[in-house]
């Protein structure tokens, strides 16, 4: 029976892989590669002659810069936020390049499916938006954050606690979990359907019936891989746009 020959591997074995060197595994390799590739592409694009019409790699770079400017900064922070474009662009490119190996055959491991990278990025964002808030509003940033304008005095203790928890504590946590859990869920789905396909093809009993049935999980695998292309982009976009919203909100208090 299939149920006996099919067993799901330990979660550690689909996420950890072997160490390449001491404490340097495939995840670290993907993260380093994402950083290097991102830097290389933009350095290469920046070296081209600026007077000619853009083509090739410079086209890609210009499109992504315009996407960040028009799609993220202008929508959330307005004109004042354009100075944040380089930071948001590098955040977006790094997360996207970390997500995409999840669907590249033979690599198939999103580096963001481990908690460390999303958590580091979320803590970085946390430090930055609180720093921006303290710089722009001074010490009033804290009162502006925990009491939205127009709160009655009687409700201030309650609202203060709720807003403090949701703005200061939950934000980095939810940023982390959103990116990490999305990529992990996608990775586990791909693993599940790949294993189902494999176990149907290598079934020892009822081969005539089971082998053709392998087309079903395989079709699902192809569909989910296409879906993961979308998810990899969408999660990078959402992480970046939330960063922009948090920085914008800290720089300009609500009235």
């Amino acid at each position: 029976m299939i149920a006996e020959s099919f067993s799901f591997p330990e979660i550690n074995s689909i996420l950890r892989w072997q160490d390449l060197f001491v404490s340097f595994n495939k995840i670290a390799l993907i993260a380093v590669a994402a950083g290097v590739i991102g830097i290389a592409v933009f350095l290469l694009a920046g070296r081209k002659d600026a007077s000619k019409a853009p083509k090739g790699v410079r086209n890609l770079a210009e499109t992504s810069v315009e996407f960040i400017e028009n799609g993220i900064v202008m929508q959330t922070m307005g004109k004042d936020g354009l100075g944040w474009t380089p930071f948001l662009l590098s955040l977006f490119v790094f997360i996207y390049l970390c997500n995409v190996p999840g669907i590249i055959p033979l690599i198939q491991m999103p580096a963001t499916a481990r908690m460390a990278i999303p958590m580091f990025l979320a803590l970085l964002v946390w430090v930055i938006y609180n720093g921006v808030g303290l710089k722009h509003q001074g010490i009033k940033y804290i009162t502006n954050t925990i009491w939205p304008p127009g709160v009655p005095v009687a409700l201030k203790p309650l609202v203060g606690i709720i807003e403090f928890i949701s703005n200061i504590i939950v934000r980095p946590f939810s940023l982390t979990v959103r990116l990490f859990a999305n990529m992990l869920a996608g990775h586990i789905l791909l693993v599940t359907f790949a294993l189902l396909t494999q176990s149907l093809i290598t079934a020892e009993t009822m081969q005539l019936m089971l082998k053709p049935m392998a087309i079903l999980p395989f079709g699902m695998l192809v569909f989910l891989t296409a879906f993961e292309v979308l998810v990899a982009f969408l999660q990078a976009y959402i992480f970046t746009i939330l960063t922009a919203v948090y920085i914008g909100g800290a720089a300009h208090p609500e009235h």
Partner: peptide, 25 residues
Amino acid sequence: MVRTTMFLGIAFTEALALIGFVVFI
């Protein structure tokens, strides 16, 4: 504008399901 706001809303709503997924793991 609606699309941007929609993605923001989806991100906040989806977080609850994802926390459930983490608990599942």
